[in-house]
Amino acid sequence: MMIEIDCRGLACPQPVLRAKKALDNMQEEEVLVIVDNPAAKENLERLANFLNYIFKLEKKEDNNYYIIIKKPKGNEYST
């Protein structure tokens, strides 16, 4: 199961803090983070790179970014 963190309406650094907390305690292998501004999206990408996790922009609807951050498996690498 994937945890979903809805960070719409939250200013930086809140989306990163919430994502980090979820990833730190992560039982599951991935989280879905929803943010509504490009700065939050980029900050989540930095966090994922820092943790050596995979960052994937799943979809963008209007100003909402649906981002999946997950642990790399086998031959998957963070870009």
Binding site: P13, V16, N37, A39, E42, N43, L44, R46, L47, F50
Partner: peptide, 8 residues
């Protein structure tokens, strides 16, 4: 900055 703590 590496952690993603960059202000908007």
């Amino acid at each position: 900055a590496n952690l993603g703590l960059v202000p908007e």
